[in-house]
């Protein structure tokens, strides 16, 4: 699936909750729990993406022209959001990642999570994933 199709799928999933924010957050926490464990060797300070309240670890793997990510967070809701990004971008080419406009965040009612970089590692994480892709495209 393309990153657009995957975003639309996520929007569909969340539409079931309508404007029930609490259920959305519980769902995000469940999604976070399903994110595959990071290789502990990769969960180091070198791969930390820091926010004020939540931390994210992000480890990129480049294989046969495609990017894959291992990720984790110290907060459950951020981890859920992180799992959505991994779902959208895992196995995509660096170019597709760079070209993706992330519209799903607003559509699922989570725009506040990208509003302030200070309070959340999630915004920094999006930037970091694109940076990895950018470095590969430049090569």
């Amino acid at each position: 699936m393309t990153s657009i199709e995957l975003q639309n799928e996520i929007i569909d999933d969340f539409s079931l909750f309508e404007d029930d924010l609490e259920s959305k957050l519980f769902y995000l926490m469940d999604l976070g729990k399903k994110l595959p464990d990071m290789n502990t060797a990769h969960k180091s300070d070198e791969f930390i993406v820091k926010g004020c309240q939540s931390k994210v670890w992000l480890y990129p793997i480049y294989n046969e022209g495609k990017l894959y990510f291992e990720a984790d967070s110290n907060t459950e809701i951020t981890k859920g959001l992180v799992s959505l990004l991994v779902r959208i971008w895992n196995g995509k080419t660096p170019k597709e990642i760079l070209d993706t406009e992330l519209y799903f965040i607003e559509k699922i009612g989570m725009s506040r999570m990208i509003g302030s970089q200070r309070s959340n590692g999630f915004t920094s994480m999006i930037k970091q994933m694109k940076m990895y892709a950018f470095a590969l495209v430049k090569e």
Binding site: L21, E22, K24, L25, M29, C52, Q53, S54, N74, T75, E76, I77, T78
Partner: peptide, 21 residues
């Protein structure tokens, strides 16, 4: 086993404003 950031967001989802951090 719960991070204060998650708790703050969960409480906010029920209209409850607290400080976390």
């Amino acid at each position: 086993n719960k991070h204060h950031f998650d708790i703050g967001l969960m409480l906010d989802a029920r209209g409850i404003a607290v400080r976390t951090g």
